[in-house]
Amino acid sequence: MSGPLARLRGAADRAAEAVSVALLAAMFAAFVLQIVSRYLFDAPLGWTLELCLTTWLWLVFWTSAFVLGERDHVRFDVLYLSGGRRLRRAFALAAALAILAGFLASLPATLDYITFYRIKHSATLHIRLDWVFSVYGLFAVAMVVRYLVRSWRLVRGETTDEDAEAGA
């Protein structure tokens, strides 16, 4: 991939990484503020815990959806690696279709759950909980798109990440 599409993809990747960095920085700053407030001034701040939890939630799902690649996730691939190229492609396609089916099946309930929480707010920061949990909806949609594309590429016979790593 080259040209304008590659530049757009690179810019989107850098923006996703910048969001992850900002979330981690906000979480770390709240964590340090809580330590200083609690142990130096003996005045704990309740909102810092909630901010740490919320930024952690967003950091995990945002980064998993938009920053990490297929090879960055934990895999149990002993059986997968024992097979030849065709068997590995079949395993990869079966796994991609199973993940796609699972996320597609859970998407309506996920979105319903998130929209239900628009009536509730967090305890100390008073953030609407649908905003807090919306990152999981983004994650679920991103996984549907990712595994739809992965399935399509596997069906077309394109080289997988695992094939490239093995030098095939």
Rank of each mutant, 00 (worst) to 15 (best):
T124K: 03
I119K: 13
D77E: 15
Y39F: 15
F139V: 03
G102K: 02
A6P: 03
R14L: 10
V132T: 04
W47C: 01
H126D: 15
R85M: 09
Y39C: 05
A65F: 02
S2E: 13
D112S: 14
T48F: 00
S2G: 14
E162R: 09
G102E: 06
V141Y: 01
A90E: 09
L57C: 07
F28R: 12
A96C: 07
D13P: 03
T55A: 06
A95H: 11
P4Y: 12
S20M: 08
M27K: 02
V149Y: 05
G157I: 14
I35C: 10
D77Y: 05
F66E: 01
L148P: 02
R89M: 06
A22M: 05
L81M: 11
F103S: 01
V149W: 06
F133R: 04
M27P: 00
Y80H: 12
V149M: 12
V144H: 01
S151L: 05
A140H: 03
M27Q: 05
I35M: 14
D72H: 10
R38C: 06
V36R: 03
W152D: 10
S37M: 10
L51V: 04
A12Y: 08
A96H: 00
D130T: 07
G157L: 11
G157Q: 05
L154I: 08
Y147E: 00
V32H: 07
F139W: 08
S122I: 02
Y113D: 04
G10M: 08
A96L: 04
T110Q: 10
A109T: 14
